[in-house]
Computed example of a mutant assay.
Amino acid sequence: MFIRSERLFLRPGWPEDWEELLSLIGDEKVVRHLANVPWPYTAHDARAFIALPHDRLLPRFFITQPGASGARLVGGVGLHSGLETADGAPELGYWIARDLWGRGYASEAGRAVLSLARTLGYERIVATHFIDNPASGRVLEKIGFRHTGRLVERFSKSRGAKFPAREYERRLGHCDSDDDGGLMRSRRAA
């Protein structure tokens, strides 16, 4: 499965991507904000992540930026079953290489995945961010997530302990909804 947005191309990981993945996510300042990524991140971890089976209902993508000399890896985004929710809502997760923070790539990729989630029939998506990463909360709010008012304890593989995280949710209404968090703009631009 592939998704094209205004500036980005989202695609599955391929075995030959492991070295580029390792060079970008093998950064403690990136990994410490992620719940399911160990530190230190190794070549074995990169190869194992790429080899994970794909689930069409919980898609995950590498975020790439096409250019004249090919498409460079920017980060990752996808849906997974991280949080235990009563309705089984999937969780949105993402990361961006540190030297590319602040360029809107997480928001753009997040919107694209939310549009796909709506197409897959999901009515609600959840997300969290560790409290020491408020920039991630701003990304979530920018794409239409609302803070639930709850703090949850999330285990962080890189920190080796539970750490407080803010919980968010995004309700996915009909395609003609005015409260789409920019999804329709993303679709029109694609």
Rank of each mutant, 00 (worst) to 15 (best):
G149M: 10
T148D: 03
S186I: 02
R72I: 12
T148R: 09
H80S: 11
V113Q: 01
G173T: 05
R56A: 14
F2Y: 08
H54G: 08
E6L: 08
D179E: 14
R56H: 13
N133A: 14
S156E: 06
G88S: 02
Y41S: 05
V126E: 02
A117P: 03
A68V: 10
I96N: 06
Y41E: 01
A109Q: 08
S69N: 12
D176A: 10
R150T: 02
A112K: 07
R72H: 08
D87R: 00
D87M: 00
A51I: 09
L120F: 10
D178K: 12
H44V: 10
Y168N: 06
R7G: 09
A89W: 01
I125G: 01
M184P: 00
A89P: 02
R154Q: 15
R47F: 00
S69L: 09
F62E: 04
E20S: 14
D180S: 04
L73T: 06
E141K: 14
E84G: 08
G173E: 12
R124D: 00
F49L: 10
A86L: 07
D55T: 00
G173N: 06
Y122M: 05
L24P: 03
A127G: 07
G182I: 11
I143Y: 03
G102Y: 13
G104H: 11
V126S: 01
P59K: 11
E167Y: 07
Y105I: 01
G181I: 00
D55E: 13
V152W: 03
G182V: 13
Y105C: 02
L83C: 10
A161T: 15
R60W: 15
R60M: 03
V74K: 10
P12K: 07
P15T: 00
R154C: 14
R47D: 00
P90E: 05
R170I: 00
M184I: 04
E84R: 14
